[in-house]
Design a protein around this nucleic acid. Structure first.
Lengths: 204, 204
DNA sequence: CGGGGCATGTTGACCTCGTCAACATACAGC
DNA sequence: GCTGTATGTTGACGAGGTCAACATGCCCCG
């Protein structure tokens, strides 16, 4: 983000673009992000962004990457805070994950919406998402060593856990879940079910 | 191409539009679906679709609804085929679900991509997705009665299971999962973990 | 059997948007 | 101060969604 505060014409337009685009996404959804609109909000012309990003997709990818970094930081912080009662730590991560998605629905959607983004493989994005997975794998590995969860391939288990929280976040965001259901309970039950499932492996 | 009924000008353009749009989505993604392109492929003008759908969104919603119905049918059929070894039935449903998503990635994406669709609540879509949930709840209820899974609120359990398979499908579709991982194994492990988790409930 | 009228389809036009090229300008270092 | 490059601006183009005016087919009424 803070590359350098070059006080050029605008003064680090690149960073401002990413920041403003993220804000616009939160306010009006990804569809409201227009080169013209974003330029207008920043007091520059529609063409200005092209001096910093080859096209709109690249800008959106940057926004998505920033989102992953933020999410990562958030999960990490909750994790660092006193390694609580072992498994509780994993459950907390899951909760933090879903809560992040609920707090920034449009942004979250963008992070996982390859469709709207590159056809080309976006290495930056892949790296940011990869970091998320790696962190999760690390935590799982720790718990495996403590014997708190079954000791299979931690990567596979990470995928299962990730699927559960991502799926829940996605369904909630897309309003596929009855609004009368208590979200907190549902989050708890989801993480708990996964943890229970990872402890009791009866076959394969 | 196969169906005709009213031999009006085109002969049931509405159905053709939905069908063709679905085909185009599969071929080139949702972005390739253009009023002009779809009209061209069907031999009508760009304006013709507007006699059957108020706007492009409505057409896409119809496509999404058709997708849900197809998915529902598929899950139901697998379910009806000899109520296999109890829990195996639930696992099969999960597998069928993910497999459907992998077979029709763009279509699946559309089904859950509210962003691209209505700002307004689309009752048809909600109904179709609701049917999916209801079916899942029914199956879960049956297994609860057989004592094969814990007997809490079947709706909540359905959401948990749905989250897991939807999340896995989503991550796979968006290529967030290492291609070296064996997809079949991952699907099996996911459904198995959920089932194990629903059997062994140690706390609330 | 012949119109009338609604259901369908067609076209032209307008607006928004992404993007590129030509042009303008501000900084930085000499 | 002077020049070159990093930035920003504008005009233009093409794609695409959508609407209104217009055209046409089809069914039903008399």
């Amino acid at each position: 983000m803070a590359e350098r505060a070059r006080t050029y014409h605008h003064g680090d337009l690149r960073a401002s673009l990413v920041e403003e685009a993220a804000a616009m996404i939160s306010e009006g959804g990804a569809a409201s992000v227009t080169m013209r609109a974003i330029g207008s909000r920043l007091g520059v012309s529609r063409g200005a962004p092209y001096r910093h990003f080859p096209d709109k997709t690249a800008l959106l990818v940057a926004v998505a990457v920033a989102g992953f970094k933020r999410l990562n930081r958030r999960l990490g912080s909750g994790d660092a805070g006193a390694s609580s009662s072992s498994v509780e730590r994993l459950r907390r991560m899951g909760e933090q994950y879903v809560r992040f998605a609920l707090k920034h629905p449009a942004h979250y959607r963008l992070m996982y919406g390859k469709e709207a983004l590159a056809r080309q493989d976006q290495p930056e994005l892949r790296k940011a998402a990869g970091a998320l997975l790696e962190n999760l794998i690390d935590v799982i590995r720790v718990h495996q060593q403590r014997g708190e969860i079954e000791g299979g391939d931690p990567r596979a288990q990470a995928y299962v856990a990730w699927s559960a929280v991502h799926g829940l976040a996605s369904l909630l965001i897309e309003k596929q879940i009855d609004p009368n259901v208590d979200v907190d309970d549902l989050i708890r039950q989801t993480t708990q079910t996964i943890l229970d499932g990872m402890r009791d492996r009866s076959q394969d």
